[in-house]
């Protein structure tokens, strides 16, 4: 799957740096960002809010049957991360010799997510690393 250059570019703040947003009216934190706060609807007051990337593993799986784009990368581990700011965030957990388990502490790193063939773009993305 080739990705349109603009489609990964437009979410770069989020995919590199976990920038989501926060509703100044009710305090809800969102990742990825929303245009409309789930609680406040048309009264939403959403402002950019960067997550620290710190959190813990809430659930995880090792994917051995990947989609086309990732077929040369399997097996790899993906996790549902409970961030310290609240939102659950999905992401790869990179191998670093530590055992992945529920409750394990993580932080983010920047890695390649996938590459569009030999001539296309390299898509960089946050991933999680066990601390």
């Amino acid at each position: 799957m080739e990705t349109a250059p603009a489609s990964s570019w437009r979410k770069q703040n989020a995919s590199y740096n976990l920038v989501g947003n926060k509703c100044e009216k009710c305090g809800a934190v969102y990742f990825p960002s929303r245009i409309i706060c789930k609680n406040c609807g048309r009264e939403s007051k959403l402002k950019e809010h960067k997550l620290t990337g710190e959190g813990e593993v809430y659930s995880y799986t090792n994917i051995t049957a990947p989609s086309d784009t990732f077929k040369d990368d399997a097996p790899y581990t993906v996790g549902m991360i409970k961030t310290i700011e609240g939102p659950l965030v999905e992401g790869h957990i990179v191998e670093n010799g530590k055992e992945v388990k529920i409750g394990a502490k993580v932080r983010t790193v920047l890695r390649k997510m996938y590459v569009d063939g030999d001539e296309g773009l390299i898509h960089y993305h946050y991933k999680f690393e066990l601390v």
């Binding site: 990964s8 994917i63 990368d73 790899y76 993906v78 992401g91 997510m113 996938y114 898509h123």
Partner: peptide, 8 residues
């Protein structure tokens, strides 16, 4: 886009 498949 992060390789999280449906079974995943």
């Amino acid at each position: 886009a992060q390789g999280i498949t449906f079974p995943g």
